[in-house]
Design a protein around this nucleic acid. Structure first.
Lengths: 201, 201
DNA sequence: TAAAGAAGTGAATCATGATTCACTTCTTTA
DNA sequence: TAAAGAAGTGAATCATGATTCACTTCTTTA
């Protein structure tokens, strides 16, 4: 055999792939998914267009991967808040707050992840992750209902509604750079009311 | 002068235009905006492609018009519920119910209006109408806060959140043809809680 | 150093619909 | 009935990016 992939080559390939993903994400941070073209990714990463296709079968695969990675980071942050050692009510409000806080920290990215018109493939991923968010909230709401600290309700509907409320209520404020903290407080309160907190220990 | 538009011609042109809009909307009802191509509209309306361009400057104008007309119908229905001679709380819940009821009556259209990935031009219209919904709810929430039947809150945020909650919570149920009425009841309750009803006269 | 096996390249091609435009058909009026 | 002024037509063209592929360059091994 005259050629075999050495660890060094393997590592360089990994670095190349993650470099492409970085370039792609930074384009999305700047101009949303509309700015994510193969040409732009290639030139930002300093490679030829063809090279991008060595690492991703097609554009959908690249955009979806960018979406997925960014969204998982957000999801994990929310998950963390939801799994703290605190009361159900506080965990729910904290989760909403974390979501909002992070959105305000990177408004364009948040908008791209939440609401930008995107390729159907990316939109499919969006739906998936909306469900993932929903599932996280559903579990905590169900816990609250079972333990009697939340009013009786349909956790799956409340969870989806909460996710929708969080996303939609930020869309306006994300445009303006003002009053983030007021928005966050109002969102916390909305979520707490929506979920029907009975006892506030 | 050898030619002048007679009333008959004028009427025929109006009929032609509304025929094209009908054809377009029926395509959207069947397959969402993805199914809305100029070719399809022309053939469904029984005219040539070129004719479509006699009535609409470009595709964006046509799709936006379809979106606008359909959405205004929904908006008016919600507006009607919000302006009934009933308590603030009941009006809000009724409005959510009307929204949901109508969505279940035409699920594909509802999905197309609420969540389908669409051309940026249509999406812009979507944002506008989200704001319009929001404004309607905001006024009623503000009224409730002022008159002391709702807990103190930021009406603009609550309204946007409510609109988001209504849209998002229907996305799942719209896929399945089951349990519409349970969903609607759960949504009503969610909205009532979210908005913090103090007195229930 | 030579040959094999990739990775890298970017101009050329493709795909998908929108859009145009030279032409035909219809309507109106004198 | 003839000429003007539209409306109607659909094959051909355009626009926008994604995708390909023949070729070049790099890496590895014997």
């Amino acid at each position: 055999m005259a050629y075999r992939e050495t660890p060094m080559v393997k590592q360089r390939k990994l670095a190349q792939k993650s470099g492409l993903l970085r370039a792609a994400e930074s384009l999305v941070r700047e101009g949303g998914f509309a700015a994510l073209t193969i040409q732009a990714v290639a030139s930002k990463a300093g490679v030829g267009v063809g090279t991008v296709y060595r690492y991703f079968n097609n554009k959908d695969e690249l955009s979806t991967e960018v979406f997925r990675r960014a969204t998982i980071r957000e999801l994990e942050a929310v998950k963390l808040a939801l799994s703290a050692e605190l009361s159900v009510a506080v965990r729910l409000a904290d989760a909403a707050e974390v979501f909002a806080q992070r959105a305000f920290a990177a408004p364009k990215l948040a908008w791209a992840l939440i609401a930008e018109p995107v390729d159907p493939a990316v939109d499919l991923a969006r739906l998936e992750y909306r469900k993932a968010y929903s599932a996280l909230f559903e579990a905590v709401i169900a816990e609250g209902v079972d333990s009697g600290v939340l009013v009786s309700q349909t956790p799956s509907l409340s969870a989806a509604a909460l996710v929708g409320a969080m996303a939609e209520s930020l869309l306006g404020p994300l445009d303006h750079p003002s009053c983030d903290s007021l928005t966050i407080v109002a969102l916390r309160e909305f979520c707490l009311r929506a979920v029907g907190v009975l006892y506030k220990p």
